[in-house]
Simulated scan of single mutants.
Amino acid sequence: MSLRDTDQRCPPPASFLALDPTLPIDTAIERHDLCEALARQLAEVAHTYMGRDGVLFHDVLPRCRRVAESPDIGLSETEVGWVLTRVRELIRG
């Protein structure tokens, strides 16, 4: 990724950059994009479960955590925490 590509993308929020201030900005942008996409997908699925199946908010978060912690996803522990916080924000509006 060139600097020009990085400049055209939105910078991650401070809450994400604080997770690992040593990351190069292009890596931070890529990691944030991954985490944000996952959070949006999890929030959408959680919202569906809550509306269709009557699953309560506090019951759906552990399910989201299990997905985010999956080795296949490859998130760090701090990224998982950020994703879950973002899911809460997205669900609660």
Rank of each mutant, 00 (worst) to 15 (best):
R52T: 15
L19Y: 07
A14W: 06
E44I: 00
H47F: 01
L38I: 05
D33A: 15
A18P: 10
E44V: 00
F16K: 09
L17Y: 03
L90P: 00
E89T: 10
E69V: 07
L56R: 15
E77Y: 02
F16T: 08
R52I: 13
T48P: 00
L19T: 04
T22W: 01
V67H: 06
R86H: 13
L42T: 02
M50N: 09
I91K: 03
L84W: 04
A18I: 00
D72F: 12
L84E: 05
E77C: 00
E36G: 01
V45C: 00
G51Y: 00
D26M: 09
C35F: 03
A14N: 08
L75S: 03
T48W: 11
I73H: 05
V60C: 04
L34G: 02
F16H: 11
C64N: 02
T78F: 00
L61S: 02
D26H: 14
T27G: 00
T78L: 09
C64Y: 03
A18V: 03
E89F: 06
L61V: 12
V45K: 08
V60M: 07
V67C: 06
A18M: 04
R66Q: 15
R65Y: 08
A14D: 15
F57L: 15
L90Q: 03
V87A: 01
A28C: 08
L17D: 05
I73W: 03
V60I: 15
A39S: 12
H32I: 02
I29A: 08
H58W: 06
I73G: 04
V87G: 01
Q41G: 06
Q41L: 10
I73Y: 04
L34V: 14
D20Q: 11
L38G: 02
R40Y: 02
C35Y: 04
P21T: 13
Y49W: 12
A46I: 07
H32M: 04
S15T: 14
L61Q: 01
D59L: 09
I73T: 02
P62R: 10
L17K: 12
L56N: 10
R63E: 03
D53I: 04
L61R: 02
L56P: 07
L90D: 01
D72Q: 14
E69S: 12
C35N: 05
P62N: 11
Y49Q: 10
T27W: 00
F16L: 09
C64T: 01
